[in-house]
């Protein structure tokens, strides 16, 4: 299988992972009145109130799924963006530079987001 075929397969798989976890995230954040679930916003009030953020952060489920969603969404989004850019037929050298830049940006954001998920878990446990 060629490299881009493999990456495309991962793009589709990552899309399905994003579908599940972003679906959950959107349900918690933006369908909280239509689908109220006490386990998702245990302190009541708005989903982004610190009490709810901390309560979700205390669990293992949310920090782990945040990191999974982060990785899958970054790969899905940045690989999709790379495909769009490559359709403009940049020269081979520019393609390589773009590929590396997007990969580095993705890794950097993954590092920041993962740190945030772990650190927020610790902050929530101490609170």
């Amino acid at each position: 299988m060629m490299r881009d075929q493999k990456l495309w397969t991962w793009h589709v798989v990552a899309g399905l992972v994003v579908l599940v976890f972003l679906g959950l995230h959107m349900t918690i954040m933006h369908l909280d009145e239509v689908i109220p679930a006490a386990s998702l916003n245990p302190q009541g009030g708005h989903p982004i109130d610190w009490a709810n953020v901390a309560a979700r952060g205390k669990t293992l489920f949310f920090p782990i799924t945040y990191v999974v969603l982060l990785g899958a969404a970054l790969f899905h989004g940045l690989y999709g963006f790379r495909n769009i850019l490559f359709e403009l037929n940049p020269p081979g050298a520019l393609k390589r530079v773009l590929g590396w830049l997007l990969a580095l940006a993705g890794l950097g954001l993954f590092a920041i987001g993962t740190w945030a998920a772990i650190a927020a878990h610790r902050v929530a446990l101490l609170a």
């Binding site: 610190w50 953020v53 999709g80 927020a120 609170a127």
Partner: peptide, 30 residues
């Protein structure tokens, strides 16, 4: 699909940076 994908990606990149503030505690988050 392309337009919404690019919009979601732009939002997502900013969202990661903004919501990372929760790692610094309640005051930074609020």
């Amino acid at each position: 699909h392309r337009i919404t994908g690019l919009g979601l990606l732009l939002y997502f990149l900013l969202h990661i940076l903004l919501t990372s503030s929760r790692a610094l505690g309640m005051e930074a988050w609020e």
